[in-house]
Amino acid sequence: MIIYFLCLVLFCIGLYCILRKRNIIKIIVGIIIAEYAVNLLFILVAYRKNGRSPILSPDTEIINMVDPLPQALVLTSIVIGLAVTSLLVVIAMRIYEKYGTFDITKIRELKG
């Protein structure tokens, strides 16, 4: 139960960064950290005590395997996260090109 709580703390750090920081790159960093925490929670739920990885072996029979389903979901989620991060970075670079800053409060002042 403590380990779920530590995972939640990691998510809250990311959430605080998204809500509080004003630099766009810092906001992207917060999104990445929150995404890591969610992926970690899925794998933690799938873990089985004294389990083995879900890959069969030719000579020995493995009985105590971890849950393969959340691992498959996380595998796709990681690659989607990379694509979304690169999209966010491109938007941030376009904003920097237009306004010359990463600070979102300054961008609001320059509107119009």
Binding site: I43, Y47, S53, I78, L82
Partner: peptide, 22 residues
């Protein structure tokens, strides 16, 4: 450590690419 080698490999290489882009 949580016995997910597929996810570990993918996370490692994705992290490197993410770092380069950032």
């Amino acid at each position: 450590l949580l016995k997910a080698p597929d996810v570990a490999i993918t996370q490692l290489v994705v992290e490197i690419l993410c770092l380069i882009i950032l």
